[in-house]
């Protein structure tokens, strides 16, 4: 698989304070994003996710390190011609209408007028803003701004799309819409690099992830390789049984309205629980084996670090 984005030994520090002191933000980042995948870049607030993306885009200059985008130097126009970017909390020219806004960005890619008109119509319908094309961006809601931001990131039909916290601040419906668009991009052969701290979303759509803590990537790889498939515990919701009958089999977490939530840590004891339920003619409402989640992995690593 060809490499869409490669970052080698990236360092960045900033001077802060009245008497300038150097504060290290990135301390040797290595990343490899393959073409056609959704790559999740995870990290707690202040870990250096946005700083990495700003370096990749040439908004800030690294102290040390190499960045290559689709085989080109990251500062070259050839590289920029093939990338799309959606910033965190998109701020746009609020005095422009949605179509004026997209037209402006399209002109920066040197597209001709006919092509621009076609692109604007297609993108506005992709992000479901076709009825708002003549409305100024200052009148847009947060979700609408995020969607028009997505449209500008796709105006050049990019091969690599960089998204900085694209799901932050959106309601569940808005998040689902954006997730669907991201997956559709991958299905169309695009590479998506997405930074986030909303782990459930990352887990749902990402092929590979990298975890950054305090300016260093502490783990990187395929999701299924990082998360162990071992069952951590089994959650059983049952009814028709006395709490005392389950003693010694697991931890009884709640017993409301005749229902009991039982957490069984030993896999072998699950069968024991099932037998007791059968004996007492009880009822199982749900039985969920919990494997390790990305959240468990993330929390574990961040705490360890």
């Amino acid at each position: 698989m060809a490499i869409a984005l490669e970052v080698k030994d990236l360092h960045k520090s900033f001077k802060t304070g009245f008497i300038p002191k150097r504060k290290k933000i990135l301390e040797g980042i290595f990343l490899k994003v393959e073409e056609g995948e959704i790559f999740g870049y995870l990290g707690p607030n202040g870990a250096g996710k946005t700083t990495t993306i700003k370096c990749i885009l040439g908004l800030i200059f690294p102290d040390k390190g190499e960045i290559e985008i689709l085989g080109h130097d990251y500062l070259s126009l050839q590289a920029k011609q093939r990338i799309g970017f959606l910033p965190e909390n998109p701020y746009f020219y609020d005095y422009l209408t949605a179509s004026e806004f997209l037209r402006f960005y399209a002109q920066l890619f040197g597209l001709d007028k006919k092509e621009i008109d076609k692109k604007i119509t297609g993108l506005l319908s992709l992000v479901r803003l076709e009825d708002s094309s003549d409305i100024q961006l200052r009148k847009f809601s947060r979700g609408m701004l995020q969607r028009i931001g997505f449209a500008q990131a796709l105006i050049n039909d990019p091969s690599l799309v960089l998204l900085d916290e694209p799901l932050g601040g959106l309601d569940p419906l808005g998040r689902k819409e954006i997730r669907d668009i991201i997956v559709r991009l991958r299905d169309n052969g695009k590479t998506v690099f997405l930074s986030s701290h909303i782990l459930q979303d990352i887990e749902m759509i990402c092929d590979r992830v990298a975890i950054i803590v305090q300016g260093q990537v502490i783990n990187q790889g395929k999701l299924q390789d990082l998360i162990s498939e071992k069952i951590l515990f089994t959650e059983i919701i049952l009814s028709g049984i006395e709490k005392k009958d389950l003693e010694g089999l697991g931890e009884c977490l709640a017993a409301d309205g005749g229902r009991i939530l039982l957490k069984v840590f030993d896999e072998k004891k699950v069968n024991g629980v099932l037998e007791i339920i059968q004996e007492h003619k009880g009822k199982i409402h749900s039985l969920i084996p919990r494997t390790e989640t990305l959240e468990d992995l993330f929390v574990g690593m961040v705490t360890k670090q």
């Binding site: 920029k80 910033p87 920066l108 890619f109 931001g149 960089l162």
Partner: peptide, 14 residues
């Protein structure tokens, strides 16, 4: 200040 430059400089423009 309004961070509009982020999206602009990430486009192919010097």
């Amino acid at each position: 200040d309004k961070k509009t430059i982020y999206t602009l400089i990430s486009k192919p423009i010097h």
